[in-house]
Design a binder for these strands. Sequence first.
DNA 1: TATTTATATTCCTTGACAGGAATATTCCCT
DNA 2: AGGGAATATTCCTGTCAAGGAATATAAATA
Lengths: 112, 112
Amino acid sequence: MKNSEMDITTLSALAEPNRMNIVQLLKGGPMAVGEIADQLGIRQPQASKHLKVLNDSGIVEVQVDANRRIYKLRSEPFQAMDIWVQSFRHIMEERLDNLDHYLRELQKKERP
Amino acid sequence: MKNSEMDITTLSALAEPNRMNIVQLLKGGPMAVGEIADQLGIRQPQASKHLKVLNDSGIVEVQVDANRRIYKLRSEPFQAMDIWVQSFRHIMEERLDNLDHYLRELQKKERP
DNA sequence: TATTTATATTCCTTGACAGGAATATTCCCT
DNA sequence: AGGGAATATTCCTGTCAAGGAATATAAATA
């Protein structure tokens, strides 16, 4: 019955620009290491290192294709982040408790 | 028309255990520095330092109350994270496209 | 088999960051 | 005004992570 404990390793893996870029890139679909490095303008060894971090944290998984490794996003970490963020619903939905908001609500009731 | 660019500073601020604990604590409502430090079993200067990081990244805001500073969560970063995570809908909803999944679906249809 | 292609790993150096201890700052209270 | 409470800041130190360069590994190909 896991409440909403967010895995720190997921966040720290994403909290690095190159890795965040890799994740954004992989949103478009699976991709091999070389192409990832090309697209992002980084060197292949750095790409491999960052992909290792992403892999260790479970954000990506790898599919071996002969010579190459195709990396793709895994769904679980994003589902976990979704659940975690949703646990802040009451924070996100917080409305300004001022006159302005009051007047808006009033208008809604006058014109339903 | 900002698409879904996630602010790295938000993630790196959260990617530290003490700060994550502070955020979880503040989910319950605003709190002064001293009580935060007490609840988490950390020293006051560390609490202040971490709160400074959280404040700089916009995750919390502070309300001055005479001698004390009351910290509370801001809504924007969580809304931003929500939007960002939602941009991975297609990843999260991805179903296994294999025989196993096919058979499960078949069973569902046989026994509705 | 030799060579090329694709990727991972190692070593090194540098910079950022977290904790500890001490101190500064600000406000309250008598 | 002086003392105490609450918080912020500074200095120091050790750890860790990222990039660069070189190299190792493995598969494809000629």
